[in-house]
Design a binder for these strands. Sequence first.
DNA 1: GAGTGGTCTAGACCACCTC
DNA 2: AGGTGGTCTAGACCACTCA
Lengths: 245, 245
Amino acid sequence: MPSPRITLDRTSPVPLYFQVAEQLERAILGGEIEAGQRLENEIAMAQELGLSRPTMRQAIQVLVDKGMLVRRRGVGTQVVRGQVRRNVELTSLFDDLSAAGQKPSTRVLSLERIDAPLDVSEELQLAAGAPVWSLRRLRMIGEQPLALMHNFLPADVVQLGDVDLDSIGLYAYLRDAGFVIRVARQSISARRVGPDETHLLAEDIDSPLLTMQRTAFDNSGRAIEFGRHAYRPELYSFDMTLVDR
Amino acid sequence: MPSPRITLDRTSPVPLYFQVAEQLERAILGGEIEAGQRLENEIAMAQELGLSRPTMRQAIQVLVDKGMLVRRRGVGTQVVRGQVRRNVELTSLFDDLSAAGQKPSTRVLSLERIDAPLDVSEELQLAAGAPVWSLRRLRMIGEQPLALMHNFLPADVVQLGDVDLDSIGLYAYLRDAGFVIRVARQSISARRVGPDETHLLAEDIDSPLLTMQRTAFDNSGRAIEFGRHAYRPELYSFDMTLVDR
DNA sequence: GAGTGGTCTAGACCACCTC
DNA sequence: AGGTGGTCTAGACCACTCA
């Protein structure tokens, strides 16, 4: 039975369940606990760490939600086989790429204040024709164009006039400006490249594009951003883990 | 302050937190609680229902995880604006379409027992060349071809010889056979249609296809199924809700 | 029958937000 | 200052699995 060494710091502001989850995750990723192997039972682990059982359960639940552990009543908790796939998360493409050690760059193609078209005002839960920012950007990875991004943000809510979006991701800016994105609804599909996009994405005519459209909401449940994006599928994919709950 | 009428059945095998979550969800979807509105606080709701606070919290957490509610410390719990998007879930395409009231049909193109190619054996965590089922199916929606699906399943684990896959979804069969799919890792991208697929999916040459590849694991963490699928993007998209945790 | 996770209780203290 | 959600405790009983 594997028992990774876990240390707790009760003076830390980091919750105990999170400290345990972090160290357990490292132990699994680092191979200290083998794939398919069973963990000690919750009660014993809690006792050894001097935690209550609910706290220990909460820690394990974090990794169950990530798809790294599987629990079965009457049996125990096991490590899922197969390598972990990094998830689609609530970050922008810019953050994604930066975290992956790549060097993304951005070219702002246009930024204007317009009256929201009907579909946009609906997605953002605004009155028809309400003022919105329309932002078109081209994301490059090195010298290669990767994605064409078109975002809409309610102009009454977000000040976007004097932001240097060439050097900062949109989500990073929103975070700095105090907007906490909590929920996003997105839809992924594909289409043929359009005639006006062909030169930007350096594709030949008829090339396939991966498309994503997303509406993001802040922690008060208000729509903050709606975007329609197109990616070169040879260079990008959406990876995710689904967990049955 | 909205207070939907919630009734509990303590004799039911359905957990109390789940009963509450279900009725709260119905109240939100049915418009009894308006978008953007705040819920009563956890402690009051728990008291009114005769529940402990942790149980009430667990109920609310279910809807937070679905992206329907947002919690803020010091403020309260609010309903997220914007319509709910049905999630990508751990079901097969067949189940998805059936649930949506559509009439899917399936044509099994081929089913053979083969030695696993290297990439397949790696995805399924098998030894190279281990026996696997190779299953190719065409999914139709009415008269229109919708998706071309290619699945691989470890032959030592799953008996697939005499299953009528024309009339039952693969996941429904696996469920009936006692396999509980708990976790799946998937990747979504796009590509150009291949020359051998063009006639099946009734696309002209150069048409874009939406692609999904998925590895599914059962509740013991063992890989059960690996699939590479291609969808006609005019007819299908992957919808999902992301929640920051 | 023994061992496991799933649910539930009744409290406690704290961090954060708004007024 | 008062109210909210976030965390944590120390138990309890139950359902399920497996030998």
